[in-house]
């Protein structure tokens, strides 16, 4: 009896919801018309600059002809993909992309943690503030200027090499050798982003209850032990989440800086997926092929992101969605 009634009630609620969706929308439009007006340009923006270009992905399966446009160009199936997978530089591109990405990932995970733990043990708060301030400054340097500065300091006739020669040492081809490209790329990136990426760790450490440290001192713990058992334990969840999330973007290495650092002497290691997409697409105007490589890139990173999110949910209880 009671069950039946409850069922009836639920049904009524459902009915009410069903037939009132339009009514509710109209009512909402009336009361919140300003909100709708506000969000309209934003919606238009996303449709025009994100969703319409998504329909352009069909180019990956087409042979683009200007006069036919995106929709009218003839289909070629998987020809672009086949060409890409069988091209001689496919494995090099993948390897270069992953190598540079993993290099940056490791440095990017370790250095900010190390820095924030060490800065936490500086006693003078003025000195601490100065250090933080000075590490933020490179955030404002543009990629162009950063790469320009690399040239000034590390170039073949750069300041460092001038000093090395003065000391009678051999100069180091930082920017003009494939071997050193990854290192220079990753470490200059770490230099630029250190202040920015250690903010969250420094904040977490300043939240540690000082009594824990005091108790540890009383118990005779050395600084190393305190770093290990207190500080790093405090940072572990944040580190884990950030690390897992950056695994998701493993294949997405930005092309801006790589393009600027690239020269004929280091292409053996500096040619990565995104620079290849740019060159084939915009320099050679091979639109279909470039879109295909881009789609491959997006799909792989999508899969990596999904896997990373799964792992993060399981290990750290944190999910993007």
């Amino acid at each position: 009896m009671r069950k039946k009634e409850a069922k009836k009630k639920a049904g009524a609620v459902r009915d009410k919801r069903k037939d009132s969706f339009l009514q509710r929308l109209i009512k909402d439009l009336k009361t919140n018309h300003i909100l709708y007006l506000m969000i309209l340009p934003v919606l238009a923006y996303y449709v025009l600059f994100s969703y319409v270009p998504m329909t352009g992905i069909q180019l990956a399966f087409k042979n683009y002809r200007i006069k036919d446009g995106i929709w009218g160009s003839p289909w070629v199936g998987l020809a672009h993909f086949r060409r890409f997978f069988s091209s001689y530089n496919f494995s090099t591109l993948i390897w270069n992309t992953l190598a540079i990405s993993v290099y940056c990932l490791i440095i990017g995970a370790v250095i900010p943690v190390l820095f924030s733990v060490l800065i936490n043990y500086i006693r003078s708060s003025k000195w601490k503030k100065t250090l933080q301030m000075v590490t933020y400054l490179p955030y404002f340097i543009s990629t162009v200027v950063l790469v320009g500065m690399l040239g000034i300091f590390l170039g073949d006739s750069g300041i460092i090499n001038v000093f090395l020669e003065k000391l009678g040492l051999e100069s180091i081809p930082f920017l003009s050798s494939g071997k050193l490209f990854r290192g220079v790329y990753a470490w200059s990136g770490a230099w630029q982003s250190l202040g920015y990426s250690s903010v969250i760790y420094i904040a977490a450490l300043s939240g540690v209850d000082q009594q824990i440290h005091e108790a540890a001192i009383v118990d005779g713990a050395s600084i190393w032990r305190r770093i290990w058992h207190i500080d790093l334990m405090e940072l572990r969840p944040t580190m884990l989440v950030l690390l897992i999330m950056s695994l998701g973007s493993l294949i997405n290495v930005g092309y801006e800086k790589v393009l600027l650092m690239q020269n004929s002497l280091n292409t053996s290691t500096s040619e990565i997926l995104s620079t290849y997409i740019y060159k084939v697409g915009l320099i050679n105007s091979d639109y279909g092929f470039s879109t295909a490589v881009g789609l491959f890139n997006s799909l792989v990173s999508m899969v990596l992101l999904l896997v990373a999110n799964r792992v993060s949910k399981k290990l750290a209880g944190y999910s993007l969605w």
Binding site: V52, P53, M54, T55, I57, I277, L282, N297, M302
Partner: peptide, 22 residues
């Protein structure tokens, strides 16, 4: 709408389709 906007964070048309749209 939020879902619609956030989705673009993770997936996009890519360089060439965006360029052609512009």
């Amino acid at each position: 709408l939020a879902a619609l906007f956030i989705f673009t964070m993770y997936f996009s048309g890519g360089l060439i389709p965006t360029f052609l749209q512009v």
